[in-house]
């Protein structure tokens, strides 16, 4: 099989002093949909930023389509980013534009297409996420789930080769959730792209992805195809799949002893 589109080799990353990612190695093969899971705050969004080149790894390499993202200058990075689409965790819609203009934004910035063609393309993308009727609304007039779907439409506007979704399923009702899940899968196949989904929704992702990585404490702690994951005896994965509070995944952000903190606060 050919070289994967994205490969992370022993990536380390820290915000200032705080180590977030200690040693991550993973790859996204071309044409596949890969999911990344892990507890809240474990560094999933950070991982996407590293792939997008918004942060630079402290150690190791981030390769996208054979290029080391950390070593690119701004121009090359921008050339590369034109072929990436990223859905931000909180949508990040441009609040001074209508829904239509939001989706049209990447098309207008990076192509010389005629207004008629842009109009058609935008309406197609909006139709795909079920919001063609909301084209003239402002982001402030959308619900959280609608905003996320508009952001999704904007992400796919330029038909990128690499799609990154930061929690595309949160805030969606079960029906839209299924539709969007299928849309992500279909888009990936239709575009011949590769996708990376950060999600907590394990049931939905088991249905649509090709491969899953679990991250905890800055490392990949488990990985496998959906079938492997369903049948694994790995305690970590087991805890995740069955949503158990007790297990290897810590619910708490690292802190001192709880009892001490409370007593100390009182005394």
């Amino acid at each position: 099989m050919s070289e994967p589109l994205v490969r992370l080799e022993n990536v380390r990353f820290a915000y200032g002093e705080r180590m977030i990612l200690r040693d991550i190695s993973l790859s996204i093969p071309r044409g596949q949909v890969v999911a990344i899971m892990g507890g809240s705050g474990c560094g999933k969004t950070t991982l996407l930023r590293l792939i997008g080149g918004q942060e630079r790894a402290v150690g190791g390499r981030v390769l996208v389509d054979g290029q080391d993202v950390g070593g690119l200058d701004r121009e090359d990075l921008y050339t590369l980013r034109r072929r990436m689409g990223m859905l931000f965790q909180f949508g990040a819609l441009f609040t001074d534009m209508t829904v239509f203009d939001n989706v049209a934004f990447p098309l207008r910035e990076h192509t010389d297409l005629s207004p008629e063609l842009i109009n058609d393309l935008v309406l197609m993308k909006l139709h795909a996420v079920g919001l063609r009727g909301a084209a003239q609304l402002r982001p402030g007039e959308l619900s959280g789930g609608m905003a996320r779907r508009v952001a999704l439409a904007r992400t796919i506007a330029l038909d990128p080769m690499l799609l990154m979704y930061d929690e595309p399923f949160t805030g969606l009702d079960p029906i839209s959730l299924g539709v969007i899940g299928q849309l992500i899968r279909r888009l990936n196949n239709a575009l011949g792209a590769s996708s990376l989904i950060v999600t907590h929704d394990i049931q939905e992702s088991l249905q649509i992805v090709d491969y899953i990585y679990f991250i905890s404490e800055g490392r990949v702690v488990a990985e496998g195809t959906p079938d492997e994951i369903r049948n694994t005896s790995d305690p970590f994965v087991h805890q995740f799949v069955h949503a158990e509070a007790d297990g290897p995944v810590p619910f708490h952000y690292p802190a001192g002893d709880y009892a001490t903190a409370l007593v100390g606060g009182a005394g």
Binding site: Q54, R81, F90, A92, L93, E109
Partner: peptide
């Protein structure tokens, strides 16, 4: 306006779409 665009990650999103926020 610019501060709120930063809070809501609009500037980052723009940068990620290969549109320079300083120019745009």
């Amino acid at each position: 306006e610019i501060g709120l665009m930063k809070v809501t990650e609009q500037l980052k999103a723009m940068d990620m779409m290969a549109v320079n926020p300083i120019a745009r």
